[in-house]
Design a protein around this nucleic acid. Sequence first.
DNA 1: AAAATTACTGTAATTATATACAGTATGTTA
DNA 2: TAACATACTGTATATAATTACAGTAATTTT
Lengths: 205, 205
Amino acid sequence: MSLIMKNLTDRQKEILDLIKSYIGDYGFPPTRADISKELGFKSANAAEQHLRAIEKKGYIKILSGASRGIVLSEEEEKGIPVIGLVAAGGPILAQENIEKRIPESQSLLSESVDYYLRVKGDSMVDVGIFEEDLIGVKKTTDIKVGSVVVARINDEVTVKTLKKFSSEEVILKAENENYSDIKVNPFVDELNFEGTCVGLLRNLS
Amino acid sequence: MSLIMKNLTDRQKEILDLIKSYIGDYGFPPTRADISKELGFKSANAAEQHLRAIEKKGYIKILSGASRGIVLSEEEEKGIPVIGLVAAGGPILAQENIEKRIPESQSLLSESVDYYLRVKGDSMVDVGIFEEDLIGVKKTTDIKVGSVVVARINDEVTVKTLKKFSSEEVILKAENENYSDIKVNPFVDELNFEGTCVGLLRNLS
DNA sequence: AAAATTACTGTAATTATATACAGTATGTTA
DNA sequence: TAACATACTGTATATAATTACAGTAATTTT
């Protein structure tokens, strides 16, 4: 079972995914018959019951009487969270850190973005990452040397280029000549990689 | 009448807008009855006839037999065009220049973007605009000194900071010490402002 | 001046859709 | 072990929705 859709059964998740994909294809939600046809149910009521169950768990809202009246719940369409300042101690994606949400950008950035992080400071200006820019972060533990990473050193979140990564030493490079490299000994300091920077968004004007 | 919706009558445009706004509110298109109620028609057939007319003009597709089967046509939801290289001579938004389209980003960039332009060269690196970045351009003739503008000088499109703007001389500044300012005499050279840069998008990884 | 388009009202029929009720079977929780 | 949740089939019905047909009236195009 998925970690995100903890409450939903596999079948229910399958139906929720179908609804989303149907909306993507047609621009409106499926009927009970559409769902049944797609999943091979012989009775439209199978779909109905699943929908009720999914609604009960809060993932959709069924508008009574309206045809195709399936509304994805807030959480489902809230979009990608934008993280401003990260409170010390908690996880980055904690509710208190979420500044707002940006509707899913689809093909906007080629790789999928888990959240946007508002950049503080000018330590990355040489690679064109400026203060107040939003960097698109993909959560991954698969970190590569040379890529821009979001790292957490003793509860402090920082964005830097990964220069060296070995069991004895990790070097994080600031892309600004006024800053020096950060050398971390994983045995001394607590170091976690939150993700890789896969894109950037800037609001001018 | 609007310039963009040239074919549609005011009433038809009103209905098309209603459809879009309804979809925005509910996540699915309205029924004929919904449209009629909203616009005060006493017969659902009034909506039907309008829909047929709008379909005939190519702005929507009506899926026969399907409830709420109104599909916005390609053009209506294609999204914001991405411009790669601009062919000399023609308008920036000419079909041949459109590389792809990005689904409307809504609140992504605070101001509305008319098109994205892929940046060539490194003349703007000092303000964090790198080669291959996409800058969000808003078409406007209301150009301000100090802002990053998209200008066309004798058929060549360039992105620069507007440094000076007077009837005798226009200075466009490259944000890179290796480049010198471009001084344009509007009487000698043909100069057009295509728009202002209101945002930036970058794909890393 | 005729034909077509726009912009509706009104009626009605067919079909599309939601949804209740009655079951069956299996697995899970209290 | 009883109650509940999951995962369906099958039948039926009210209502939601599309959509055809018949008009009226004003405006626009040919």
